[in-house]
Design a protein around this nucleic acid. Structure first.
Length: 563
RNA sequence: GCGCCCGUAGCUCAGCUGGAUAGAGCGUCGGACUUCUAAUCCGUUGGUCGCAGGUUCGAAUCCUGCCGGGCGCGCCA
């Protein structure tokens, strides 16, 4: 939890060695489950009982005697069946708070994070919310933890649909320059309908795809224009959402077109491909389909076109060979779990993905509507992301309406967008959740606005104080100690999230900080106290504000100075 | 049929990878504002951790089998 944790752990390990001659035992030091158990607890004695052949409490007594922590802790206590409880000295707690820093030093490792992945010619919808929000948060957390982060936005800008759209455009004689965003959306719908109802048109569309993929100038020109419209729109949505994604991060499916033949050739010469029904397939051990038959990865379709698996394999190769990734992360919904298992397995079999480079599918659940089914509009249509964001901002604006002295637009945006993001991030990402704005913008409970409010209160106190905060020196009240203990654990919490890729743990931590702050706020006057107590509490406030501000920032959430 | 995920308080969810009497929020009920933002805080109520076995000092957590829900399973991405 805190920066002292590794130190205490090492001391415990040493105590085990000197007492029982067992080297390198992990004490599994954890935050105490209850305040009366101090600050940290270890079950060492319980686990050692069988190995050593002594009663747990007897072991605990010996460990406590051998443990040298008097510089950091009060006398260790033995409790229950043999737990060893440690209580930090106020000076240790204060040191932990005063040491809170920013991002860790670079660890010389590069992580490639693939997320957002919207589709050209379609507006971003609720389905893109989670990938974008989770991806942003993970990128921030990974960078904080010392990784060099490379974002990859694998935009859907290639494939059959563009053959349809270009063919439809030429059929109608529509000028591509005359299209706007809605026009493009409508064009997509018309061409889809045409494609489904007219086999002759469908055939021409497929031919048009071949023209596109072989670089026919007229086709490519129209396609580029469609891509351009979409990327402009994505930029607008990212700006509204507060995502740092830019065009520099876009590496669409089309970018791998030239590499696909090479992918198939290499797989073939490695003996990994089998022809099945006219398609080139890789059959991997351990993957079976509906009736127990082997499940293929189709890299080349029977019509000669490349499947998306080929594209994804090329992308993996690109990440390893060109981007020099040490770790590869995909933030994609859980329905593609099997697909990624296959891609990773095949990439490893082909030798493109060395065993030393972990590849992780960060899977997430579905956003549900009020009826508990995947979120759709009343008439079953797609829910656009901008619509949701605008609605959340409007909701926040209504809440803030009677607050004087605020930059209403800016704060409403921070609160509304922050509410949506926090709601998305605060649950374990593998679960589905119901999109419920009322709950998201609520000021109480585990919500974004609650955390922002805590930050705003602290900002007010620090502004009013006048003098700038110094160091935490006095921690006598229980509320002060609880808060200080939590604050000291900030860095470790972020590092843990960088390992597990579970942003909700950071949310839980920040919520704990905010509730501890609220209790402190109620019981410990800051401005009206005096002398060293006042100075110390101001410093505690400053540290808390920093943790909330930076922590929310890692989640991609802005913390306004007032609300 | 096979595979992945899920099942914890009336509702929404945590539970740090096997540890102490399973915790929060919302809701209920009851308190606290001439006092740093009461958009808050404190207290109260509430659970056979889906069911049944197994593993051991100890299981919401691990293993097996059921029940129930979501998703996936060859040329869409």
């Amino acid at each position: 939890m805190s920066a002292v944790l590794p130190v205490l752990s090492a001391r415990l390990t040493a105590a085990v060695e000197t007492t029982f001659g067992l080297p390198g035992v992990d004490p599994e030091l954890r935050p105490a489950t209850k305040p009366e158990f101090g600050h940290f607890q270890t079950n060492l004695a319980l686990r050692l009982a069988k190995i050593v052949g002594l009663p747990p409490r007897e072991i605990a007594v010996r460990l406590a005697a051998a443990l040298e922590v008097s510089d950091l802790c009060a006398q260790p206590e033995i409790a229950g069946p043999g737990f060893l409880n440690l209580t930090l000295l106020p000076t240790t707690l204060a040191a932990g708070v005063n040491k809170i820093g920013g991002p860790l030093r670079e660890r010389g490792e590069r992580v490639v994070v693939d997320y957002s992945q919207p589709n050209v010619a379609k507006q971003m919808h609720v389905g893109h919310l989670r990938s974008t929000v989770i991806g942003d948060a993970l990128c921030n957390v990974l960078r904080f933890a010392g990784y060099q982060v490379i974002r990859q936005n694998h935009v859907g800008d290639w494939g059959t649909q563009f053959g349809m759209m270009v063919e439809q455009l030429l059929d109608e004689g529509t000028e591509v320059d005359a299209l706007d965003l809605d026009g493009m959306q409508l064009l997509y719908q018309r061409s889809r309908k045409h494609f489904d109802s007219d086999p002759e048109f469908a055939d021409r569309s497929r031919l048009r795809v071949v023209l596109l993929q072989s670089g026919d100038s007229q086709t490519v020109e129209i396609w580029q224009q469609l891509v351009e419209y979409s990327l402009t729109e994505f930029d607008r949505v990212y700006a509204l959402l507060g995502s740092p994604l830019t065009r520099a991060d876009v590496v669409g499916e089309s970018a791998y077109n030239d590499a696909l033949q090479g992918i198939v050739d290499e797989l073939a010469s490695a003996g990994l491909l089998t022809e099945s029904g006219g398609a080139q397939c890789a059959f991997l051990p351990g993957f079976t389909g509906r009736d127990g038959s082997p499940l293929p990865v189709i890299v080349r379709k029977s019509d000669g076109g490349f499947g998306y698996s080929a594209t994804d394999l090329a992308a993996v190769k690109h990440r390893v060979d060109d981007l020099h990734a040490d770790r590869i992360v995909y933030v994609v919904d859980h329905r593609q779990s099997l697909h990624f298992q296959q891609i990773f397995a095949l990439a490893r079999a082909a030798g493109w993905l060395p065993p030393t480079i972990p590849a992780e599918h960060v899977a997430f659940g579905t956003v549900l509507g009020p009826n508990g089914k995947p979120f759709k509009t009343r008439d079953g249509g797609t829910v656009y992301l901008v619509t949701l964001l605008d609605e959340a901002v409007a909701r926040a604006a209504a809440l803030l309406a009677d607050r004087p002295g605020l930059d209403q637009d800016t704060v409403a945006r921070a609160v509304g967008i922050g509410a949506i993001k926090y709601a998305d991030l605060s649950n374990d990402r593998s679960n589905d959740y119901v999109f419920d704005l009322d709950r998201m913008v609520a000021m109480t409970g585990n919500t974004g606005p609650y955390l922002q409010y805590a930050h705003a209160r602290l900002t007010r106190i620090l502004d009013k104080a006048g003098d700038s905060p110094t160091l935490v020196t006095v921690l006598t009240e229980p509320a002060e100690q609880r808060l200080a203990l939590l604050l000291g654990g900030f860095t470790d919490t972020v590092v843990q999230v960088a390992e597990t890729l579970q942003p909700h743990r950071l949310c839980t931590y920040l919520y704990d900080v905010a509730t501890a702050l609220s209790s402190f706020y109620e019981t410990c006057p800051v401005l009206s106290s005096s002398g060293e107590v006042r100075a110390s509490r101001l410093a505690l406030c400053a540290a808390t504000r920093k943790v909330l501000h930076d922590g929310l920032g890692l989640l991609g959430i802005t913390a306004p100075a007032a609300m």
